[in-house]
Design a protein around this nucleic acid. Structure first.
Length: 476
DNA sequence: TGCCCTTTGAAGGGA
DNA sequence: TCCCTTCAAAGGGCA
């Protein structure tokens, strides 16, 4: 397996791999050596660029290693944010302080209006990011209403894909994004930059001043301006980290890691409660100073989407009462179970990122729905990508892993093995491979034996398989 | 209902 | 170091 030099420890496997795809392999071999050198240049430049930006003032070797926990991402982030804040004196947002994870500088929405009463562009963008199903039009009553709604989103606002990346391209339509789109923007080009210029603290418009809790009559406190609605894990820490790849998957209208409604930040403490599983996860995985208090939701918001919590049944008030005594006795047990149930997913690799981005396109082109067939097409298209194109995804994957590692330092891919009945699947896999070795007529075998150039040589069972390539065959 | 399929890449463990 | 295995996404198919 050819590997490139110069990668960091996280990107060690981010190397271009010579195609193992059956028939294509031989024809690619001759060009591999030179092409890989080219890719090495491309990739090393990408990696160097990001790493140089991250650690411009320190020596390379030490910086390649994950920094000590006491001064890791959290401290870097705070420093970077402070630095970024200083740089924003002119009101213009410049390059993100941490290039790998372009911080979305979420403005304070206390006063999202321009002097003329219209909603500021930044506010519109913010709203559309936060609630992409809202069709927020500039300056209109609708936008103000949208803002009002956004400050206290109904479940209808909350459900549905949480799209960070293409504000303005979604319309409220029965919770389903009508217009999603597309590939106009390079995946490595962050779409959104934010400025605080339109969000200087001030008095909200009159209709927002009436924002009073109907039950208590107490005015609802505005969202603290220093806390980002996104990833506010703990005060002054990594709260401003949006998912770096959230803008990568416009077709599906959701970030790489779906944001669950449970993680949806709400400005009011009463709106949501800290997910118990998340809380226990944080307690178990992070030092106490990084664990947000249970009662202050505004410090929680959106966990890293890699965290998948199981569906916890909402118990009714009646059942709450009836089970009060028993719940006390089983609290510890439940907590323990929840800890076990929390599932931190693996970071996506380059191909997975590519698949996520391109799946919808392939589905549309080929009118296919079967994922297995789609994935075959995507696999071939992946191979057909230029080295530079692939390098983008390798770089994204590297950043993804980096962020994942920073968020879950103690996590290991092995942690997820047990959850899927390791032994059982191992056995199945072995059985399958054994079966395949006895059956030379599988589609893959025919492809491997003859390749796409000799379709006539494919056996009958494999022939229908060709259909699944759809238009993809022409592009290969 | 839950596993399988299908792809590539990352990671971990065993030899 | 190499090899093997599992998992990550996705959704139709199937037992």
């Amino acid at each position: 397996m050819p590997q490139l030099n110069g990668g960091d420890d996280l990107g060690a496997n981010d190397e271009m791999i010579s195609f193992k795809d059956e028939g294509e392999q031989e024809e690619k071999i001759s060009e591999n050596s030179s092409a890989e050198r080219d890719l090495a240049d491309v990739k090393s430049s990408l990696v160097n660029e990001s790493e140089t930006n991250q650690n411009s003032s320190s020596d390379s070797e030490a910086e390649r290693r994950p920094p000590p926990r006491s001064e890791t991402f959290r401290d870097k982030t705070r420093e970077s944010l402070e630095e970024a804040a200083k740089r924003q004196d002119g009101g213009l947002f410049k390059s993100p302080p941490y290039p790998g994870y372009p911080f979305i500088m979420i403005p304070d929405l206390t006063s999202p209006y321009l002097p003329n009463g219209s909603l500021s562009p930044t506010a519109r963008t913010y709203l559309q990011m936060k609630w992409p199903l809202l069709d927020v039009q500039p300056g209109g009553l609708q936008s103000r209403q949208a803002l009002k709604d956004a400050r206290s989103p109904s479940p209808a606002h909350i459900v549905g894909p949480f799209c960070w990346e293409f504000p303005g391209q979604f319309h409220l339509s029965n919770k389903v994004p009508v217009v999603q789109h597309p590939h106009h923007v390079h995946p490595l080009t962050p779409l959104i930059t934010y400025s605080n210029e339109h969000f200087t603290p001030g008095n909200p418009p009159p209709h927002l001043q009436t924002d009073v809790d109907p039950k208590t009559g107490i005015p609802r406190p505005p969202h603290p301006p220093d806390i980002s609605p996104y990833y506010p894990l703990s005060p002054g820490t990594v709260g401003q980290i949006p998912h770096p790849l959230g803008w990568l998957v416009p077709q599906q209208g959701q970030p790489v890691y779906p944001i669950t409604t449970g993680g949806f930040r709400h400005p009011y403490p009463t709106a949501l409660t800290v997910n118990a599983s998340m809380s226990s996860l944080l307690s178990s995985r992070f030092p106490p100073h990084m664990v947000p208090p249970h009662h202050s939701l505004h410090t929680t918001g959106i966990p890293h989407p890699a965290i998948v919590t199981p569906n916890v049944k909402q118990e009714s008030s009646h059942s709450d009462i009836s089970s009060l005594n028993s719940s006390k006795q089983t609290d510890a047990k439940k907590e323990e179970e929840k800890k076990k149930q929390v599932h931190i997913k693996k970071p996506l690799n380059a191909f997975m990122l590519y698949m996520k981005e391109m799946r919808a396109k392939v589905v549309a082109e080929c009118t296919l729905k079967e994922s297995a067939a789609i994935n075959q097409i995507l696999g071939r298209r992946w191979h057909a990508l230029s080295r530079e194109e692939q390098a983008k995804y390798y770089e994204l994957a590297r950043k993804e892993r980096q962020l994942h590692m920073q968020l879950y330092p103690g996590w290991s891919a092995r942690d997820n093995y047990a959850a899927n009945q390791q032994g059982k699947r191992k056995k199945r896999k072995r059985e399958k491979q054994q079966a395949e070795s006895n059956d030379a007529n599988t589609p893959k075998k025919c492809r491997a034996l003859f390749g796409l150039d000799q379709l006539s040589s494919w056996c009958k069972p494999c022939s229908p398989y060709l259909l699944s390539f759809c238009s993809d065959t022409s592009s290969l």
